[in-house]
Amino acid sequence: MTSVDFDAGAEATPRSSKVVLGFSDYARYLIAVVFVGFSLFPFYIVLSTSLKSESDIFAWPPVWLFDVTWDNYFSALFVFGGTGVLPFLINSLIITALSTLLAVGLGSMVAYGLTRFRVVGGSHIFFFILSTRFAPPVAFVVPIFLMIREAGLLDTHLALILIYTSMNLSLVVWIIRGFFEAIPIEIEEAAQIDGYSRLQIFRKVALPLVKPGLITTSILSAILSWNEFLIATVMTQNTAATLPVYLAGFSGSMGLEWGPFMAVGAMAVLPIMIFTLVLQRHLVRGLTFGAVR
C-alpha cells in the first residue's frame, strides 16, 4: 500500500557533500573497509565454524579453506543436548511472536490515547512509560521471579510473553507516538465529521496511516524478545525455555562441541541480521526513543 510521508518536502533542500572533518576520500574508504571487516569477522567465524568438521575446528593454525559439512546443523537440530534445538526454537518463536503482537497492540493503543486525548497527567504517563526502558532486568528479576512463582506461572510461555510485552512497551510507545503526531489532526477530524467514533478512527484511519511505524516497531521488539536471555533463564527451565536458555545450558561444557554450538548460534543470529539491515535508520529512532531522528 501507500506509505505516507507527511514530512515530504520538508527536507527537499539539496545537501552538499561538503564535510567538516577533513578525511580524504581514500582514507574514508580505507577506514570504512577496515571497520566493516572488523564488524563482519565474528559472523564469519560463527558461520565457518558451524560448517567445519571437528578436526578443522581445533586446528592450529586456523584453517581458512575447509570441506563444508552440515553435520553440525543436523546434530544441533535433533541430537545435541538430547532433544536438539528444535523445541526451544519453537518456544522462542511462539514467545517472540505473541509478545511482539501484544506490545505493538497495547503500545499503539496507549500512544494514540495519549497523543489524541486530553488525559489528566498524560505527559507524566508518557515519561513513566519511557522510563521503564531503563529498568535493569537484572534488578527486577528477583521480585518478578517470586511473583511469577506465586502465580504458578514458572516455566510457562505466558510468563515470558507478559514480561517481554512490558519490557518492549516503552519502545513501541515512543516510536509510534512520533508517527501518530505526524498525522495531521484534520484527517482524524474529517473522519469525525464523517460520522466515525474515536475508536473507529483509531482503527480505520490512524492505524493504517502508521503502518510503517507498526512494522518497524514489530521487528525491533521481536528482535529484543528473541535475544533476551536473563529473564528467560530465570523464569523457564524446560517446557517454555527459549533458544538462549538452551544455548546457555552448555556454556560449562562447551570445550567439546564447538561445531553444533556455533550452528545454534548461527541460527540464532543470522535471521536477525536481515532485519537489522532492513531497519537501519529506524534503529536510531527506536533505540534512542526519537531523541535522534
Binding site: 564488524s39 536477525i272 541480521m273 537489522t276
Partner: peptide, 8 residues
Amino acid sequence: SLLPVMAM
C-alpha cells in the same frame, strides 16, 4: 557495519 548491533 551495523550488523553487530542487533546480534544476540
